[in-house]
């Protein structure tokens, strides 16, 4: 997956967790929690979905890497290499 696809992948996961939030206007370099209502349980859900959809493991000590969309891209790029984007699952 490339940068755009990873951002799409994360946004799609957020849509299933927080259906009332508008993910379209999310800024890439601002902490997600500052832009939409996401609590620590929601971050856990993102981690579980990444495992389920893409087989990617994010250990607890790395959760902080997912704070911004840019952070997600940087951290997940190597892990998502060669994987296919799945949206609306």
């Amino acid at each position: 997956m490339n940068r755009e696809e990873i951002i799409l992948a994360i946004k799609d996961i957020i849509t299933t967790i927080a259906p009332d939030e508008d993910v379209g206007s999310l800024k890439n370099d601002v902490r997600l929690r500052e832009q939409i209502e996401l609590d620590s349980m929601d971050f856990l859900d993102i981690v579980m979905e990444l495992r389920k959809r893409y087989g990617v493991q994010v250990p607890e000590e790395d959760y902080k890497e997912l704070a911004t969309l840019d952070g997600c891209v940087a951290y997940l790029s190597p892990k998502l290499q060669g994987k296919v984007l799945k949206v609306g699952v």
Partner: peptide, 8 residues
């Protein structure tokens, strides 16, 4: 979540 990570 922890259990699922272990199974994975």
């Amino acid at each position: 979540n922890k259990c699922d990570a272990w199974l994975h």
